[in-house]
Amino acid sequence: MIALLTRDLRLALRAGGGFGLGLAFFLILAVLVPLGVGPEPATLAVIAPGILWVGALLACLLSLDRIFALDYEDGSLDLLATAPVPLEAVVSIKALAHWLTTGLPLVLISPVMGLLLFLPGEAYLWLILSLLLGTPALSVIGTFGAALTVGLKRGGLLLSLLVLPLYIPTLVFGAEVVARGAQGLSTATPLALLAGLTLGAVALLPFASALVLRINLR
């Protein structure tokens, strides 16, 4: 298990692993939005929670097809499926590795992005907290989408079409936490819903992912 995690992290960090692409995308988005919307701090402050969450979601999406595609191409996935580790665990570890290389860095640089978008001061804590709670769900749901499309040639676009609708509840609750935080309102309800969603997804979706992965490998 730990061997698989360290291998995936190592692969992501070495040349061609694609680590940092999601972060760069997130940064570009935070630059493009003011260029498109205008530099008014008041306007940007209003849309900042939504933009930051949509940005995090899209940045997560970018690296999803790498979760299984590379292992599928070089045959490791077949070998992993015949190895003495349950496929459900493999899937969970892969999602964890994806989160550590994509979700967690997004959480860590999100305050900088908030600065660029004039996020109100009270909202920073909630931004970090909501991303910390929500991005694991993005990774786990994305892993399910990646498992669904693993055998398909040019499955990337289809992957987005399948995964983005599944991201809607996470996005709604996550952005709501930040928006309420920015207004000084109570964030308890959306935060609890977000946490519940993430826990449910982390607990149940790996079974679905492993199931479709087995179907795709046969």
């Binding site: 692969l11 070495r14 996935l77």
Partner: peptide, 12 residues
Amino acid sequence: YAAHADGIKSTL
């Protein structure tokens, strides 16, 4: 099991 593809990671 050993398939046609070796499952080797090129950067490792």
